[in-house]
Amino acid sequence: MSTAVDPVLVLVLMLNFLVLGTSRLRAAINASALQGAFLGTLVVLVHGGFAVRPIMVGAAAIAIKGIIIPGLLHRALRDVAIRREIEPYVSFVTSLLLCAVATGAAVLFAGHLPLAPEHDGSLLIPASLATVLTGFLILTTRRKAITQVVGYLVLENGIFIMGVSLQEAMPSLVEVGVLLDLVVAIFVIGIVLNHINQEFASQDVDQLDKLKE
């Protein structure tokens, strides 16, 4: 495992705060894309040295998480007049504080888990848990459908870090399957987003409230 792994994970964690703290939807999408690209490099760094398989998986992750999915989201955004997340359910300052608490809790919790020798003292597991929690935070506190999709992506990024910590032990077939699945999922979400645009001329999930008891 390369010594550059932890610095990259610190960058990933900082991007969590950026996604949560910005009100501009474009910035949120770009931050999640950058995070995805870092995860691609992480695949290679965790392996250390050059090998074909990690480089291919890493390249696929960068292409999918860093380019294709953000592209789809930017396209979905182009057709609507909204540019900002206004009035989230929880204010930006509060959600940043919650994210800090979640990150701290993830580090503490991971400290109590028994870790494999090669991960002792590494940031891999805490960063994974913190990013998953951030994804949850975005999903539950934001009003725009597209920001919720970004939250889902951040959640997936956290799970991907967990997958990276396993890559020496697992065949890459499943990783590739997971990445492909993600593309299809976002593609389907993109189509539904498009329909939300046409139906309501905005992306406020507040308008999705006809179905209740």
Partner: peptide
Amino acid sequence: RSLEATWKYLLVGGVGIALALLGTFFLAY
């Protein structure tokens, strides 16, 4: 109405399925 139902299905189901993947990784770990 069906749009709303689909959106909720996708998001709630998506998060559930994401957690299942995390759990699968935990099991491998």
